[in-house]
């Protein structure tokens, strides 16, 4: 049961007193709803690092992962394009040192390469309840605010309209030698975000940013789930 699995993750987080889910927990909730996320493993100590890397494969991204830490980039807790075990071990130590005092671990993650970044999300409106967002991702989210919203539950047509509505919608087409984005997959993702909003009232906000297009397939690379205040 997708919902049960997601709710269990949320209950565990709440028991620990968290107001947000860590990136790793957030992605498990997403995966439970068939939303494609990066392949990743959370490590608490270095002894399993080599085994983990064999499962994920180079190049790697390594991130400090804790529900207590937002703005990982600014804190120097994200390292990308790691290609050797030597480098991985060094980064592991650095991240653990940077996280001193926080509960968490190192997220060893598949590196997704793609020139196009999207954002998706969910917010609860006081009047209309869960609303799903779609738009241009990465640094453009805040700069261009090229986004669209629809109220959940979403119909297929609503998801399509959200994509058409943004000014930069052509980014989804076959442009500059890149494949057209798999729209069916995008539709499913948006509809499933809406389902989470409908089915799990404990979640107040969702931010998936960036969602990077890998070939034609969107993959959630970073995620934040905010819980309702108890």
């Amino acid at each position: 049961m997708t919902k049960d699995k997601a709710v269990k993750i949320i209950c565990d987080a709440r028991r620990k007193g968290s107001k947000t889910l860590s990136e790793y927990e957030s992605k498990q909730v997403l995966a439970a709803y068939d939303i494609p996320v990066t392949k990743e493993i959370l490590l608490k100590d270095k002894s399993n690092l080599e085994k983990t890397i064999r499962k994920i494969g180079y190049p790697l991204v390594m991130k400090g992962c804790s529900p207590e830490i937002a703005h990982k980039t600014e804190k120097g807790l994200i390292h990308v394009d790691i290609r050797t075990i030597k480098e991985a071990k060094k980064v592991f130590n650095e991240i653990m040192a940077g996280m001193k005092g926080f509960d968490g671990g190192v997220l060893v993650q598949q590196m997704i390469k793609g020139g196009r970044e999207l954002v998706m999300g969910m917010n609860r409106d006081a009047q209309f309840g869960p609303c799903v967002m779609f738009g241009l991702g990465g640094i453009f989210t805040e700069i261009l605010k090229d986004i669209s919203f629809r109220r959940a539950p979403l119909k297929k047509r609503d998801a399509l309209d959200m994509m058409r509505e943004i000014r930069g919608h052509k980014i989804l087409d076959a442009v500059r030698g890149m494949e057209a984005v798999d729209k069916k997959l995008l539709i499913d993702m948006l509809m499933n975000i809406g389902r989470i909003g409908m089915e799990i009232p404990e979640i107040s906000e969702i931010d998936l940013n960036p969602v990077i297009i890998d070939g034609s397939k969107p993959v959630v690379v970073d995620a934040l789930i905010v819980l309702e205040k108890v």
């Binding site: 954002v119 999300g121 009047q127 609303c131 906000e205 969702i206 934040l224």
Partner: peptide
């Protein structure tokens, strides 16, 4: 507007949501 933690929520103010809902 309530204080919010995510980008999604900060960009989904009442005006934006009304516009979207009416379009929908």
């Amino acid at each position: 507007a309530r204080s919010v933690a995510s980008h999604t929520a900060s960009m989904g103010g009442s005006g934006t949501i009304w516009k979207s809902v009416l379009k929908q």
